[in-house]
Computed example of a mutant assay.
Amino acid sequence: MIRAFKEGDMPRIIDIWLTASVIAHDFIEQSYWEEKTEDMRSIYLPSSKTFVYTDEESNDVLGFISLIDNYIAAIFIVPSCQGKGIGKQLISFVKEKHGKLELGVYNKNLNSISFYKQQGFLISGEKIEEHTGETELIMTYTK
Rank of each mutant, 00 (worst) to 15 (best):
S47I: 10
I43K: 11
Y141S: 02
M40T: 04
C81S: 09
I23D: 06
T37D: 06
S124W: 05
K88C: 14
L62V: 00
D39G: 13
M10A: 11
L90F: 09
K84E: 12
R12P: 07
T135Y: 00
L90W: 01
Y53M: 11
Y71H: 15
E130V: 13
Q118H: 12
V22E: 09
A74S: 10
I138A: 10
E134D: 09
F27L: 15
F27W: 07
W17D: 07
L62A: 02
D9Y: 12
M10G: 08
G63F: 13
D39A: 14
P11D: 12
H131D: 15
G63S: 08
I13Y: 02
L101F: 01
F27I: 08
Y44I: 04
L90S: 03
L18M: 09
F93K: 07
H25N: 07
A24H: 03
Y44P: 02
K127P: 10
A24C: 08
K97E: 12
K127Q: 05
F76Y: 14
C81N: 09
P11C: 12
E134Q: 15
T142K: 12
L18K: 11
S42D: 15
Q118K: 11
F5A: 02
G87Y: 01
S58W: 07
L45N: 00
Y71S: 04
I13E: 11
I68N: 11
A24M: 04
Q30S: 13
S114P: 00
Y141E: 13
E29T: 14
R3V: 11
I14M: 11
E102K: 11
S92E: 02
L67Y: 09
D39I: 13
E38F: 09
E38R: 14
F76C: 03
N59T: 13
Y106R: 07
M139N: 04
F93H: 08
I43N: 14
T140D: 10
L45I: 14
F5H: 01
K117A: 01
I86W: 03
D9F: 15
E29L: 15
K6P: 04
T142C: 09
Y106M: 12
Q82I: 12
Q30E: 15
E134T: 07
I43F: 02
I14K: 05
N109G: 04
T140V: 13
Y71V: 06
E130C: 14
L101T: 01
H131C: 05
S80M: 15
S31R: 13
G133K: 06
E56F: 05
